[in-house]
């Protein structure tokens, strides 16, 4: 499934991530999942929000560099070999993964992963089989 993700640019200064979270909370936007990628100097926070449009607006207004990206949400059977099956499908279809992270979802028998592929549509087609 294709979903909308929001990324913001973070300087490695204390309080930056908290500031973003506070801005969202103040506008009642819920963070469904969040992942942080960083280098020594800066970071990128990637988030899936319950209200993407409002979240984008809130973070832009708060002064962050914001970008929205489409990512693929894929579920994996939560049993040994589940992940391997998924990766095999992607391998066969020869799609490049730019990054991926786990999507936290309470009490479910499935693990959910978020992927950013170079070609999301192609990857999604491969996963549908």
């Amino acid at each position: 499934m294709l979903v909308k993700q929001i990324s913001i640019f973070l300087e490695n200064r204390p309080g930056q991530l908290a500031k973003a979270c506070r801005a969202l909370a103040a506008s009642n936007v819920n963070i469904v999942t969040l992942s942080l990628a960083d280098t020594t100097d800066f970071g990128i926070v990637r988030m899936i929000l319950d209200d993407h449009v409002k979240g984008f607006e809130v973070l832009s207004k708060a002064g962050f560099a914001v970008r929205d990206t489409e990512v693929v949400m894929a579920s994996v059977a939560d049993r040994p070999g589940g992940m391997a099956e998924l990766m095999e499908k992607l391998d066969k279809a020869d799609v490049d993964i730019e990054y991926s992270y786990a999507y936290a979802l309470g009490n479910s028998d499935k693990a959910v992963l978020i992927f950013k592929f170079k070609d999301n549509a192609k990857a999604e087609a491969a996963l549908a089989h």
């Binding site: 993700q5 990324s7 640019f9 990628a37 960083d38 280098t39 800066f42 990128i44 990637r46 832009s60 962050f64 560099a65 914001v66 970008r67 990206t69 730019e98 990054y99 950013k116």
Partner: peptide, 15 residues
């Protein structure tokens, strides 16, 4: 300062 429109979601692009 990075221009908001030019911000990439990708660490490699920013590097």
């Amino acid at each position: 300062e990075v221009v908001p429109e030019a911000f990439s979601d990708n660490i490699r692009d920013l590097e």
